[in-house]
Amino acid sequence: MFNFSACSLAAARAPQQTPQFFHDVFQDWLTSLQEFLQHDLPKLLSVLIFTWVLIWVVDFLTRRMVAIAESHPGRGIARASQIRTMASVLRATAIGIVGFLAALQILRDVFNFNLAPLLTSAGVAGVAIGLAAQTIVKDCLNGMLILLEDQYNVGDVVRLAGVSGTVESMSLRKTMVRDGDGTLYTIPNSQITNVANLTRDYSLPTINVAVDFSANPDEVMKVLRDAAMSVRNDPAYSDVYLADPSLLGIDSIKGSQVIYPVQFKTLANQQWAALRETERRIFIALHDHKILPGDPNRVFNGSAGSLTQTSKQLPEQPPNHPDATAAKPRETNPFTGETN
């Protein structure tokens, strides 16, 4: 049977218990706030201030790195852009690491969060991501080393991973090279193990001039030197030279062909126009002095003092004698008596 008297008594006491409940909640909240202000807030502020200082230091160092690179115009615009790329990557990576460590510190010291399960799951996830993306990580690490060591810049002529051409663009993950016929190659940085930079500091091109054996070497050397120095002293080409052309003498003799190498030292990747002009003037000088060009098929007859043009002869073949071991035995026809 329902007790109306008990219900009436509980209803009468409820208005008295409600203010006490809110009073207790308010007291607990004030106590927690006081403890937070006394103990947790200083920890939180110290972590945030220390994090801000570290981020400011990272930002200052990266901006200083870019400013130093841009203050040396001799290194080129491409190199400055590469340093800006590397600085931005370093800044983002450092800020991410500092922010992650600060968040862990706040969770542990301020909010008393147990980090063991979180770190365990993060470690397992990191291993899985690392195994799946290890090629990308290797590309980025190798790309950072290429930038730090200044192995090549945008605009350099290089040989990378069996491909030759001009570096058109590069990032931490890949390098794009365009060859002479316009083909664009994309090379992951992890595949770059050897770098041949053809435009670093200076170029040392060589012209190998083939002259006939009958020409006087001293006269040939004088003609070649005059032709090379005429280009060296030409105002249109003198700016690309770093030293006078050097004649190395006779390099090799191949039959009646004598090779005279002429070597140049020019600015990096600036030698092509000067080389073409030098070859043109050498051709004209040899023609004016009636010096024959080298020909491996020309034979010089020293005793007769004349030149004869011959073609390569095949060695004489020995006479064709029949093989006695391969001869058929003589046979006699039993019907006619004829012998074969």
Score class of each variant (00 low, 15 high):
L115A: 05
R91S: 10
R64Y: 04
S32H: 03
W52Q: 03
F100K: 04
I83Q: 00
P117H: 08
V58R: 08
Q82L: 15
S88K: 09
V89C: 10
S88A: 11
I97T: 12
L45M: 06
R84I: 11
I83R: 11
V57P: 13
G123M: 06
G99S: 15
I68V: 14
T18R: 00
L45Q: 11
P73G: 02
Q105R: 08
T85P: 07
I49C: 03
T31A: 04
V66N: 06
R84S: 10
Q34M: 00
P117D: 08
A78E: 01
T51P: 12
S46F: 12
W29F: 01
F50I: 03
Q20P: 09
L33K: 06
W56C: 03
F100R: 02
P117Y: 08
R79G: 03
L101G: 09
R91A: 10
Q105P: 05
D59M: 04
F36P: 08
S71Q: 12
R91P: 06
R64H: 14
F50H: 06
Q105A: 14
H72C: 00
F21I: 10
L37R: 01
I106F: 07
I68C: 01
R91T: 03
L48M: 07
R64A: 14
S32W: 05
D109G: 10
V124M: 01
